[in-house]
Protein backbone atom coordinates (compact mmCIF):
# COMPACT_ATOMS: atom_id res chain seq x y z
CA UNK A 1 0.00 0.00 0.00
CA UNK A 2 1.48 3.31 -1.03
CA UNK A 3 1.90 6.40 1.11
CA UNK A 4 3.19 8.75 -1.56
CA UNK A 5 2.67 8.91 -5.30
CA UNK A 6 5.48 10.46 -7.31
CA UNK A 7 5.51 11.38 -10.99
CA UNK A 8 8.78 11.22 -12.94
CA UNK A 9 10.60 9.26 -10.23
CA UNK A 10 13.55 8.04 -12.28
CA UNK A 11 15.78 11.02 -12.85
CA UNK A 12 17.46 13.75 -10.85
CA UNK A 13 15.19 15.18 -8.17
CA UNK A 14 12.64 12.38 -8.48
CA UNK A 15 15.21 9.66 -7.84
CA UNK A 16 16.53 11.50 -4.78
CA UNK A 17 13.03 11.93 -3.34
CA UNK A 18 12.31 8.22 -3.85
CA UNK A 19 15.54 7.34 -2.08
CA UNK A 20 14.84 9.70 0.82
CA UNK A 21 11.27 8.56 1.33
CA UNK A 22 12.28 4.91 1.18
CA UNK A 23 14.87 5.56 3.87
CA UNK A 24 12.07 7.05 5.96
CA UNK A 25 10.05 3.91 5.52
CA UNK A 26 7.45 5.72 3.44
CA UNK A 27 6.12 3.59 0.64
CA UNK A 28 6.34 5.04 -2.85
CA UNK A 29 4.10 4.47 -5.81
CA UNK A 30 5.12 5.51 -9.26
CA UNK A 31 2.36 7.03 -11.31
CA UNK A 32 3.94 5.58 -14.42
CA UNK A 33 4.27 2.06 -13.08
CA UNK A 34 2.33 -0.65 -14.89
CA UNK A 35 -0.95 -1.27 -13.16
CA UNK A 36 -1.54 -4.79 -11.97
CA UNK A 37 -3.97 -7.30 -13.40
CA UNK A 38 -3.39 -6.12 -16.94
CA UNK A 39 -5.20 -2.81 -16.44
CA UNK A 40 -4.26 0.39 -18.21
CA UNK A 41 -1.48 2.34 -16.54
CA UNK A 42 -3.45 5.56 -17.02
CA UNK A 43 -3.05 7.90 -14.08
CA UNK A 44 -6.76 7.89 -13.29
CA UNK A 45 -6.86 4.14 -12.93
CA UNK A 46 -3.71 4.16 -10.90
CA UNK A 47 -5.00 6.82 -8.56
CA UNK A 48 -8.31 5.04 -8.06
CA UNK A 49 -6.34 2.11 -6.85
CA UNK A 50 -4.23 4.37 -4.67
CA UNK A 51 -7.36 5.84 -3.14
CA UNK A 52 -8.25 2.35 -2.05
CA UNK A 53 -4.75 2.15 -0.63
CA UNK A 54 -5.25 5.36 1.37
CA UNK A 55 -2.55 7.41 -0.35
CA UNK A 56 -1.46 10.34 1.80
CA UNK A 57 0.85 12.38 -0.39
CA UNK A 58 1.41 13.27 -4.02
CA UNK A 59 4.49 14.81 -5.58
CA UNK A 60 4.01 16.19 -9.06
CA UNK A 61 7.53 16.26 -10.33
CA UNK A 62 8.67 16.69 -13.89
CA UNK A 63 12.07 15.59 -14.94
CA UNK A 64 13.30 18.29 -17.31
CA UNK A 65 12.51 21.78 -18.50
CA UNK A 66 14.01 22.31 -21.94
CA UNK A 67 13.99 25.02 -24.58
CA UNK A 68 10.81 23.55 -26.00
CA UNK A 69 9.12 23.45 -22.59
CA UNK A 70 8.27 20.45 -20.47
CA UNK A 71 8.20 17.10 -22.15
CA UNK A 72 4.66 16.40 -23.41
CA UNK A 73 4.53 13.26 -21.32
CA UNK A 74 5.53 15.11 -18.13
CA UNK A 75 2.98 17.87 -18.54
CA UNK A 76 0.18 15.53 -19.58
CA UNK A 77 0.93 13.19 -16.70
CA UNK A 78 1.03 16.08 -14.22
CA UNK A 79 -2.31 17.44 -15.40
CA UNK A 80 -4.02 14.06 -15.41
CA UNK A 81 -2.64 13.06 -12.03
CA UNK A 82 -3.76 16.35 -10.46
CA UNK A 83 -7.22 16.02 -11.97
CA UNK A 84 -7.52 12.46 -10.73
CA UNK A 85 -6.05 13.33 -7.35
CA UNK A 86 -8.90 15.75 -6.70
CA UNK A 87 -11.09 12.65 -6.31
CA UNK A 88 -8.68 10.84 -3.98
CA UNK A 89 -10.26 11.28 -0.55
CA UNK A 90 -7.35 10.10 1.55
CA UNK A 91 -4.94 12.67 0.12
CA UNK A 92 -3.53 15.16 2.65
CA UNK A 93 -0.51 16.71 0.98
CA UNK A 94 0.30 17.60 -2.60
CA UNK A 95 3.60 19.07 -3.73
CA UNK A 96 3.89 20.50 -7.25
CA UNK A 97 7.41 21.19 -8.47
CA UNK A 98 7.17 24.29 -10.62
CA UNK A 99 9.89 26.61 -11.89
CA UNK A 100 11.02 30.21 -11.59
CA UNK A 101 10.71 30.28 -15.37
CA UNK A 102 7.08 31.22 -14.76
CA UNK A 103 8.32 34.78 -14.09
CA UNK A 104 10.22 34.85 -17.38
CA UNK A 105 13.23 37.12 -17.59
CA UNK A 106 13.64 40.79 -18.43
CA UNK A 107 15.00 44.16 -17.42
CA UNK A 108 11.74 44.94 -15.63
CA UNK A 109 12.19 42.14 -13.08
CA UNK A 110 13.60 43.12 -9.69
CA UNK A 111 16.96 41.64 -8.70
CA UNK A 112 15.15 39.12 -6.50
CA UNK A 113 11.66 38.17 -7.65
CA UNK A 114 9.09 37.49 -4.93
CA UNK A 115 6.14 35.12 -5.18
CA UNK A 116 3.76 38.08 -5.53
CA UNK A 117 5.27 39.01 -8.89
CA UNK A 118 2.95 38.27 -11.79
CA UNK A 119 3.95 35.60 -14.33
CA UNK A 120 5.63 36.92 -17.43
CA UNK A 121 3.41 38.61 -20.00
CA UNK A 122 5.64 37.33 -22.81
CA UNK A 123 5.74 33.61 -22.08
CA UNK A 124 7.81 31.33 -24.24
CA UNK A 125 7.26 27.60 -24.52
CA UNK A 126 8.70 26.85 -21.06
CA UNK A 127 6.86 29.60 -19.20
CA UNK A 128 3.62 28.60 -20.94
CA UNK A 129 4.03 24.98 -19.85
CA UNK A 130 4.89 25.99 -16.30
CA UNK A 131 1.87 28.30 -16.22
CA UNK A 132 -0.30 25.39 -17.44
CA UNK A 133 1.13 23.20 -14.69
CA UNK A 134 0.34 25.84 -12.04
CA UNK A 135 -3.14 26.28 -13.50
CA UNK A 136 -3.73 22.57 -13.01
CA UNK A 137 -2.51 22.97 -9.42
CA UNK A 138 -4.89 25.90 -8.91
CA UNK A 139 -7.81 23.82 -10.24
CA UNK A 140 -6.85 21.09 -7.81
CA UNK A 141 -6.70 23.61 -4.93
CA UNK A 142 -10.17 24.90 -5.81
CA UNK A 143 -11.57 21.38 -5.92
CA UNK A 144 -9.85 20.21 -2.76
CA UNK A 145 -9.42 23.06 -0.27
CA UNK A 146 -8.99 20.44 2.47
CA UNK A 147 -5.66 19.26 0.98
CA UNK A 148 -2.43 21.09 1.76
CA UNK A 149 -1.00 22.12 -1.62
CA UNK A 150 2.59 23.36 -1.90
CA UNK A 151 3.89 24.81 -5.17
CA UNK A 152 7.67 25.07 -5.30
CA UNK A 153 9.04 27.48 -7.90
CA UNK A 154 12.58 26.24 -8.05
CA UNK A 155 15.63 28.00 -9.44
CA UNK A 156 17.72 26.47 -12.22
CA UNK A 157 18.46 23.00 -10.88
CA UNK A 158 21.75 21.22 -11.38
CA UNK A 159 22.70 17.65 -10.62
CA UNK A 160 22.56 14.34 -12.37
CA UNK A 161 19.86 15.72 -14.65
CA UNK A 162 20.10 19.50 -15.16
CA UNK A 163 16.67 21.06 -14.97
CA UNK A 164 16.20 24.44 -16.53
CA UNK A 165 17.12 26.29 -19.68
CA UNK A 166 20.13 28.07 -18.24
CA UNK A 167 21.42 25.06 -16.29
CA UNK A 168 21.22 22.99 -19.47
CA UNK A 169 23.02 25.68 -21.44
CA UNK A 170 25.84 26.27 -18.96
CA UNK A 171 26.44 22.55 -18.44
CA UNK A 172 26.21 21.52 -22.09
CA UNK A 173 29.01 19.26 -23.27
CA UNK A 174 31.99 20.97 -24.85
CA UNK A 175 34.27 23.66 -23.59
CA UNK A 176 32.35 26.73 -24.76
CA UNK A 177 29.22 28.51 -23.62
CA UNK A 178 27.68 31.24 -25.76
CA UNK A 179 26.56 34.42 -23.99
CA UNK A 180 25.28 37.87 -24.97
CA UNK A 181 27.97 40.44 -25.63
CA UNK A 182 27.77 43.33 -23.16
CA UNK A 183 25.62 41.49 -20.59
CA UNK A 184 26.55 39.53 -17.50
CA UNK A 185 23.30 38.94 -15.60
CA UNK A 186 22.75 37.70 -12.05
CA UNK A 187 21.70 34.05 -11.96
CA UNK A 188 20.99 31.34 -9.38
CA UNK A 189 21.35 27.60 -9.19
CA UNK A 190 20.24 24.95 -6.70
CA UNK A 191 21.26 21.34 -6.51
CA UNK A 192 18.82 18.50 -7.11
CA UNK A 193 19.62 17.38 -3.54
CA UNK A 194 18.39 20.69 -2.13
CA UNK A 195 15.18 20.52 -4.17
CA UNK A 196 14.61 16.94 -3.00
CA UNK A 197 15.04 18.07 0.62
CA UNK A 198 12.50 20.85 0.02
CA UNK A 199 10.01 18.32 -1.37
CA UNK A 200 10.49 16.07 1.66
CA UNK A 201 9.95 19.12 3.89
CA UNK A 202 6.76 20.05 2.05
CA UNK A 203 5.49 16.46 2.40
CA UNK A 204 6.20 16.26 6.09
CA UNK A 205 5.25 19.75 7.28
CA UNK A 206 2.10 21.72 6.74
CA UNK A 207 3.45 24.43 4.46
CA UNK A 208 0.67 25.11 2.00
CA UNK A 209 1.28 27.92 -0.47
CA UNK A 210 3.55 29.05 -3.26
CA UNK A 211 7.25 29.27 -2.49
CA UNK A 212 10.32 30.31 -4.39
CA UNK A 213 13.05 27.79 -3.71
CA UNK A 214 16.49 29.20 -4.41
CA UNK A 215 19.69 30.22 -2.64
CA UNK A 216 19.72 33.52 -0.77
CA UNK A 217 22.36 34.90 -3.11
CA UNK A 218 22.88 35.25 -6.84
CA UNK A 219 26.02 35.30 -8.95
CA UNK A 220 27.13 36.67 -12.32
CA UNK A 221 26.65 34.28 -15.21
CA UNK A 222 30.32 34.75 -16.15
CA UNK A 223 31.42 33.47 -12.73
CA UNK A 224 29.17 30.41 -13.07
CA UNK A 225 30.65 29.57 -16.47
CA UNK A 226 34.15 30.00 -15.06
CA UNK A 227 33.36 27.71 -12.12
CA UNK A 228 32.29 24.86 -14.39
CA UNK A 229 35.47 25.21 -16.40
CA UNK A 230 33.88 26.46 -19.63
CA UNK A 231 34.87 29.39 -21.80
CA UNK A 232 32.47 32.22 -22.57
CA UNK A 233 31.82 33.08 -26.19
CA UNK A 234 30.00 36.45 -26.20
CA UNK A 235 27.75 37.01 -29.20
CA UNK A 236 26.27 40.32 -30.34
CA UNK A 237 22.61 40.87 -29.66
CA UNK A 238 20.72 41.12 -32.92
CA UNK A 239 19.26 44.54 -33.66
CA UNK A 240 15.76 45.12 -34.90
CA UNK A 241 16.66 45.99 -38.51
CA UNK A 242 18.10 42.59 -39.29
CA UNK A 243 16.87 40.85 -36.18
CA UNK A 244 14.18 38.85 -37.93
CA UNK A 245 16.74 37.03 -40.03
CA UNK A 246 19.59 36.90 -37.53
CA UNK A 247 17.46 35.75 -34.63
CA UNK A 248 16.73 32.57 -36.53
CA UNK A 249 20.45 31.98 -36.69
CA UNK A 250 20.99 32.43 -32.95
CA UNK A 251 21.85 29.25 -31.12
CA UNK A 252 19.22 29.99 -28.45
CA UNK A 253 15.52 29.97 -27.94
CA UNK A 254 13.88 33.33 -27.19
CA UNK A 255 13.58 32.39 -23.50
CA UNK A 256 17.20 31.34 -23.18
CA UNK A 257 18.27 34.53 -24.97
CA UNK A 258 16.36 36.57 -22.40
CA UNK A 259 17.97 34.61 -19.55
CA UNK A 260 21.44 35.16 -21.00
CA UNK A 261 20.68 38.88 -21.28
CA UNK A 262 18.81 39.67 -18.09
CA UNK A 263 19.14 36.58 -15.89
CA UNK A 264 16.74 35.98 -13.03
CA UNK A 265 17.01 35.44 -9.30
CA UNK A 266 14.27 34.35 -6.91
CA UNK A 267 13.70 35.72 -3.44
CA UNK A 268 13.53 32.67 -1.15
CA UNK A 269 12.53 34.54 2.03
CA UNK A 270 9.05 33.04 2.27
CA UNK A 271 10.50 29.52 2.05
CA UNK A 272 13.11 30.36 4.68
CA UNK A 273 10.38 31.66 7.00
CA UNK A 274 8.43 28.43 6.45
CA UNK A 275 11.40 26.36 7.60
CA UNK A 276 12.43 24.90 4.25
CA UNK A 277 16.02 23.63 4.35
CA UNK A 278 18.22 26.43 3.03
CA UNK A 279 20.16 25.42 -0.05
CA UNK A 280 23.85 26.12 -0.47
CA UNK A 281 25.02 29.21 -2.32
CA UNK A 282 24.55 29.59 -6.07
CA UNK A 283 28.30 29.20 -6.57
CA UNK A 284 28.49 26.03 -4.47
CA UNK A 285 25.55 24.55 -6.37
CA UNK A 286 26.97 25.11 -9.85
CA UNK A 287 30.41 23.96 -8.72
CA UNK A 288 28.91 20.76 -7.30
CA UNK A 289 27.40 20.03 -10.71
CA UNK A 290 30.82 19.28 -12.18
CA UNK A 291 32.31 17.75 -9.06
Amino acid sequence: MADVVLTDPDMGVGALVVDALQRLGIEIARSDAPAPAGQSAAAEVWLERLDEARTGGLVVNHCRLRAGGLSRRSLEMAERVLAAASRCETLHRVVVVSSGQVYGSGAELPTFVTEGHAPTERPGASATDIADLESAAARFAAARPDVSLTVLRVAETVGTAPHGLLADHVLQPGGFVTTRFGYDPQVQFVTAHAVAAAIVHALTEDVAGVYNFAPADAMPLSAAIRLVGRTRVPMLRTVSLVGGILRRMEPWSHELGELLTFGRALDPQRAVDAGFPEPSSAAAAIAAAVY
Partner: peptide, 27 residues
Protein backbone atom coordinates in the same frame (compact mmCIF):
# COMPACT_ATOMS: atom_id res chain seq x y z
CA UNK B 1 1.36 15.35 10.37
CA UNK B 2 1.40 12.41 8.05
CA UNK B 3 5.04 11.71 8.64
CA UNK B 4 7.46 13.22 11.10
CA UNK B 5 10.96 14.09 9.95
CA UNK B 6 13.29 16.00 12.19
CA UNK B 7 15.32 17.57 9.40
CA UNK B 8 14.33 17.13 5.78
CA UNK B 9 17.83 17.91 4.54
CA UNK B 10 19.23 14.99 6.55
CA UNK B 11 17.18 12.32 4.84
CA UNK B 12 18.23 13.23 1.33
CA UNK B 13 21.55 11.82 0.21
CA UNK B 14 24.19 14.51 0.81
CA UNK B 15 25.28 16.59 -2.14
CA UNK B 16 28.95 16.69 -3.11
CA UNK B 17 30.94 19.09 -0.96
CA UNK B 18 33.09 21.38 -3.03
CA UNK B 19 35.75 23.86 -2.08
CA UNK B 20 35.19 27.06 -3.98
CA UNK B 21 38.13 29.07 -5.28
CA UNK B 22 38.51 32.45 -3.58
CA UNK B 23 37.52 34.28 -6.74
CA UNK B 24 34.43 32.12 -7.29
CA UNK B 25 32.18 35.18 -7.36
CA UNK B 26 33.52 38.65 -6.71
CA UNK B 27 30.11 40.29 -6.46
Amino acid sequence: HLWVVEEAADVVRPEPRVTLPEDAADT
